[in-house]
């Protein structure tokens, strides 16, 4: 193993991680819910079914906040709080269109069957000490390591 010290960002990654943990903490303590993006998104219905309403509004509020984050970040760049262009420069997607469509389908289908993604299983599930989330996290991390190995070192 060779560590890429040049791209290693211990402090911003740790600080960002603490923010993710704080968001998950606030969500369960204030709203009583698990912060899991695939579950929040996958459970969103355009029309509410049945008599038990109120399952859509909380998802929409959360997702609007999530979508507002890059806009606030860009505003912050304008106010001189962050280096301009740093965020958008660091969002470059190298995968081609065909690859992105297949990857997106796999992520959508897989996170629904597996009932969680990096946030729901990886952050909240491991924080709850859930054996199910530990198994899921090992499975998707393992598959991620294997996929990158195949795509970068074999194909």
């Amino acid at each position: 193993m060779h560590i890429d010290w040049q791209h290693f960002t211990p402090w911003s990654s740790l600080a960002g991680g603490v923010m993710l943990g704080l968001a998950a903490a606030l969500f369960v303590l204030l709203n009583g819910r698990i912060l899991g993006i695939s579950g929040i998104l996958g459970g969103l219905r355009l029309r509410e079914h049945g008599t038990r309403g109120g399952d859509r509004a909380w998802r929409v509020s959360f997702l609007l906040g999530l979508l507002a984050a890059p806009l606030l970040w860009m505003a912050g760049e304008g106010w001189g709080l962050a280096q301009p262009g740093l965020m958008s420069d660091a969002m470059v997607i190298d995968a081609d269109w065909g690859m992105l469509i297949v990857a997106g389908l796999l992520v959508g289908l897989g996170t629904r069957y597996g009932a969680g993604c990096t946030s729901g299983h990886g952050v909240c599930g491991l924080s709850r000490l859930s054996p199910r989330s530990l198994v899921a996290t090992m499975a998707f991390m393992g598959a991620g390591f294997a996929t990158v190995y195949v795509l970068r070192h074999i194909v």
Binding site: T118, A136, L151
Partner: peptide, 14 residues
């Protein structure tokens, strides 16, 4: 749980 998470991981790695 396992097959779903594996599929997700493949997409994530792609």
């Amino acid at each position: 749980l396992i097959l779903g998470s594996l599929a997700f991981g493949i997409g994530w790695g792609m």
